[in-house]
Design a protein around this nucleic acid. Structure first.
Length: 469
RNA sequence: GGCCCGGUGGUCGAGUGGUUAGGCAGCGGACUGCAAAUCCGUGUACGUCGGUUCAAUUCCGGCCCGGGCCUCCA
């Protein structure tokens, strides 16, 4: 039985989908104006594991995973202007980069990937309903959600504003660090629709030409693809307030139904003890890291820490993740010609993941079984270990490559100093030298290859090689 | 100021009211022509002060420290 930590209750709860034939999850996707950094990648990767787990539990066809692309935003407009490119070109290119990057991190594509600009009609419909119901008002070309209206007339019993983030309106106002816009009736009100200028993207609406505010798009995309109430909504911890709080307000006031049953939030990647963020200037872009390390090492690094804990990012940690994978792949290499046992359950990893996605404990199981694959001689145990490694790897989205490919990986931007044919020739020469007991020459060749980043390993079945880290 | 979250051995990192997490690094050994890899052995930690308890790292409270949200942010 899967248990998940629900931000609504701050407790682990048993996960029971509304409809086991249609399990629905939504993850907040990127605003497409720049390459993602490793912090942005964390929710994509950890909730990819959740997606895999749910698919295994309920069947791949029974799980619907929606992850949006936010392609209308001030940051996008500004970046396009800076770079002198069309907004549509910028968002298309950035979306492509995003897909490339997360594919290298081993993430499955979501079932649906809607865009904000593709959901304008639905957004406008929701805003109209909110105005009709008296939860929103128009002011100077803006439409604003009126927080006091929700306080006075909760759409559902107990569903007042601040339920998720545990903030109340007075606290928010007391802590406000930003001037309140003059057209707001209440300082806590937030924008659903705002006017646009002729040079920027905009759509006609009952309130004039404009564009959606940030929060409403997710409400609209979620409702369109998952319905008024669905199971899981996930994202980074920084989205709890205001983004998710506002989504709840809009959706529940509009629909008159509960919005989301389980809210999941991942902790931050940190660098130097601080949250990794563009505004802090301590980001590492996924693309830059992929130039130095295999994507799988990045993925493993993200899974070595429980998703709700902070994760201090270092290159050293990334090197360790790569070394962990070396071990797993060595185990797979040893059992390459063994036929895996059929019908084996990835029991260790499954049990761990069912406990609020405890990937760290799941990985301990992978280590244990890799150890078995490396040292066991009993054929039955080896066959079982191979099957478990494969199954646990699939659940975690790891070990989908071949050992050969893994050990011969090299940074994409630094092409091989030496090609595989040349390596094979040198290995043959060294073998001849060894057979002639000319160890001096054999060692010279070993050293020569080492200088080219190639490490030789003499085994019972001959000499193999791998690229140094 | 308000509201959250966290402080685990050299390091990373799980977890638990009383019995081993695990990984990495280190050290010792085996294996190897030399290596690499692998294997075996090896480390009794839980911010601080109180409280509850037969028993607390684990529950409660104070304190210290760190981080986050309250503004765009994964």
């Amino acid at each position: 039985m899967l248990r998940l930590h629900n931000t609504l209750t701050r407790q682990k709860e048993e996960f029971r989908p509304l409809d086991p034939k249609n399990v629905r999850m939504y993850v907040c996707g990127p605003t497409v104006y720049d390459r993602i950094h490793i912090g942005n990648a964390r929710p994509i990767v950890v909730f990819d594991v959740l997606f895999r787990l749910l698919r295994r539990q309920y069947g791949a066809a029974q799980v619907k995973y929606v992850r949006n692309i936010t392609d209308i935003d001030d940051k996008i407009n500004n970046r396009a202007k800076e770079r002198g490119v069309a907004i549509g070109a910028l968002t298309a290119e950035t979306t492509r980069w995003f897909h490339e990057d997360i594919a290298e991190l081993g993430c499955l594509p979501p079932s649906v990937e809607p865009t904000a600009t593709g959901t304008i009609a639905e957004i406008k419909a929701m805003i109209e309903t909110l105005v009709e119901k008296g939860y929103a008002y128009e002011a100077q070309g803006h439409v604003l959600f009126h927080v006091p209206a929700m306080m006075e007339r909760p759409p559902l019993p107990q569903h007042v504003y601040g339920l998720l983030s545990r903030k109340n309106r007075d606290d928010l106002i007391a802590g406000a660090r930003v001037d309140v816009a003059p057209y707001k009736k209440d300082p806590a009100d937030f924008v659903l629709w705002k006017p646009s200028t002729p040079d920027l993207p905009g759509w006609d609406s009952p309130w004039g030409r404009g564009r959606p505010g940030w929060h409403i798009e997710c409400s609209a995309m979620a409702r369109t693809h998952l319905g008024e109430t669905f199971d899981i909504h996930a994202g980074g911890l920084d989205l709890v307030f205001p983004h998710h709080e506002n989504e709840i307000a809009q959706s529940e006031c509009c629909n008159g139904r509960p919005f989301v049953r389980y809210w999941l939030h991942n902790g931050f990647i940190e660098r130097g003890g601080e949250k990794m963020a563009k505004s802090v200037g301590n980001i590492d872009k996924v693309r830059d890291l992929l130039d130095e390390f295999p994507g799988e090492a990045l993925r493993l690094l993200l899974l070595k820490t429980h998703y709700r804990s902070p994760l201090e990012f270092t290159k050293e940690g990334l090197r360790e993740a790569k070394a962990d994978l070396d071990y797993f792949y060595r185990a797979l290499a040893r059992v390459a010609n063994v036929e895996a046992e059929q019908g084996v359950e990835p029991a260790g990893a499954l049990e761990a993941l069912n406990d609020d996605l405890n990937t760290a404990v799941a990985l301990a199981s992978l280590h244990y079984n890799s150890g078995l694959a490396l040292k066991e001689d009993d054929p039955a145990k080896v066959r079982a270990a191979k099957a478990i490694i494969a199954a646990e790897g699939a659940l975690l989205g790891l070990l989908q490559s071949s050992p050969d490919a893994w050990f011969r990986w090299q940074p994409p931007k630094s092409p091989a100093a030496i090609d595989e044919k040349k390596i094979a020739e040198l290995i043959d020469l060294r073998l001849a030298a060894r057979n002639a007991k000319n160890f001096k020459e054999a060692d010279r060749i070993r050293t020569e290859l080492a200088q080219q980043g190639v490490i030789l390993e003499d085994g019972p079945t001959g000499t193999t090689w791998r690229r140094a880290s």
